[in-house]
Nucleic acid binder design. Structure first.
Length: 402
DNA sequence: TCTGGGGTCCTAGGACCC
DNA sequence: TCTGGGGTCCTAGGACCC
């Protein structure tokens, strides 16, 4: 028997909320996080007052400036966001032991089996119990961490997220077992997680506008759009998706002492290329950054990828499989090699990026003898940085520009 | 919508091996 | 020298999410 026990909790306009905690004078005003007024970059979070003027996450700061010139523009405080995210999570963990962070402002909570723990005389049934508890949890996040939140509760992870979207702002939406299909049917296809602008466009071309139409479409018509996802997209459109919470996002386990060999470590920078030296220095700095992060996670990279975006936005990647390493100079050597291969057009670049993947765990920290000279040098750099800060040491090829 | 930065996962062709 | 077919790895690109 499926029960509505999966909860998606999302912090409303999270970055804006934190900025308002740091500076209470921002309350009630149009606030846009992402960059200085009129500058480069995109909006990462906009208050509802700013949204009233058409400002959305993802649009350029320039456009946001045009739409809402009266708004307060802030660049953002990433370290504070992580700290507040952690606080919200601690509160949520009091309500269920099964919590998975999907991003800095979104968590999934499994309440299966929690009914008897929370049952109270006034509750009409177990659903009522869970709904009451979720409301209390949302209130606690708001009261104790100062962060307004919304929540959706449903039988599957996908529908819980959709329900959370319907609950915004600052609400709770409960979709009981049996009501899944009716809840999803009238919604535009774009509301379903996994359907982005490209799939939306292609579905529209087929005359498929709602999730009811999507659920009824033939496999043959959906295959070219969703490929391997076809079956799961259809299940989600019917509200029959799975109730597993999935993996914790690795970005939140950077300093996990156990280490995680999963995923990718990447850094990229958009900049104005004034001369070849700026680009060379940028690449060197990115290599240092990703390698430092790899070492802090206790992993080595088996693949190095260079990413390069030209001024016309054409983006290419070049990658190379290597003997696993986390040593800056070794990664840097490969990156320069890839850069020489990739940089073929006579156009300025606007972005460079370095990614490490095919990660493998380092041997035990105790056996220092297993590290080669490069690795021992890198560990010394890490020790110096731990004491004096990241910028205390750099490769000679990384020229400080700030 | 003239477009930041961090990720995940899928596709598809070619190399290489058996 | 030409002929299969399958498996796996590597590489490049792209959709999507927050």
């Amino acid at each position: 028997m499926r029960l509505a026990r999966i909860c998606c909790l999302d912090l409303d306009t999270f970055f804006v909320s934190v900025e308002r905690l740091l500076d209470p004078s921002l309350r009630g005003r149009a606030v846009i996080v992402g960059g200085r007024k009129g500058g480069r970059g995109v909006v990462t979070s906009a208050s509802y007052e700013a949204r009233a003027f058409g400002v959305r996450s993802g649009i350029s700061i320039r456009d946001a400036t045009r739409l809402a010139p009266h708004a307060v523009f802030v660049e953002g405080h990433m370290n504070e966001y992580s700290e507040y995210s952690r606080r919200a999570r601690e509160i949520v963990e009091r309500y269920s032991p099964i919590v998975v962070a999907a991003s800095i402002d979104e968590q999934y909570i499994d309440f299966h089996g929690c009914e008897s723990l929370y049952r109270a005389p006034g509750d009409a049934d177990d659903d009522a119990t869970i709904l009451r508890v979720v409301r209390a949890m949302v209130r606690a996040v708001e009261d104790e961490a100062g962060l307004p939140a919304s929540a959706g509760v449903a039988t599957s992870k996908s529908l819980a997220k959709v329900a959370c979207g319907l609950a915004k702002p600052n609400g709770v939406r409960f979709v009981p077992a049996g009501a899944e299909r009716a809840t999803l049917a009238p919604l535009p296809v774009r509301k379903l997680p996994g359907i982005g602008p490209v799939a939306e466009q292609r579905l529209h071309e087929l005359g498929i506008l709602t999730l009811a139409q999507l659920a009824g479409a033939s496999d043959l018509s959906l295959r070219p759009i969703f490929g391997a996802y076809t079956a799961s997209i259809r299940r989600d459109a019917l509200g029959l998706g799975g109730n597993e919470l999935g993996r914790e996002r690795p970005a939140f386990r950077e300093h996990d002492p156990r280490g995680s060999a999963h995923g990718t470590i990447s850094n990229e920078r958009t900049f104005v290329e004034t001369n070849p030296e700026t680009t060379a220095s940028m690449l060197s700095g990115l290599c240092e950054r990703v390698c430092s992060r790899a070492r802090s996670r206790g992993v080595r990279a088996g693949t190095v990828t260079l990413r390069l975006r030209y001024a016309d936005f054409d983006t290419i990647t070049r990658s190379k499989t290597i003997t696993p390493t986390s040593v800056d100079v070794e990664v840097h050597r490969v990156v320069l090699q890839l850069y020489r291969m990739a940089r073929t057009r006579p156009l300025p670049v606007r972005l460079v990026g370095v990614a490490l993947s095919k990660l493998s765990l380092e041997p035990s920290q105790l056996s220092l003898a297993t590290f080669d000279d490069g690795e021992r040098r890198a560990k010394t750099v890490d020790a110096v940085r731990a004491k004096f800060g990241y910028d205390a040491v750099h490769l000679a090829t990384t020229v400080r520009t700030r």
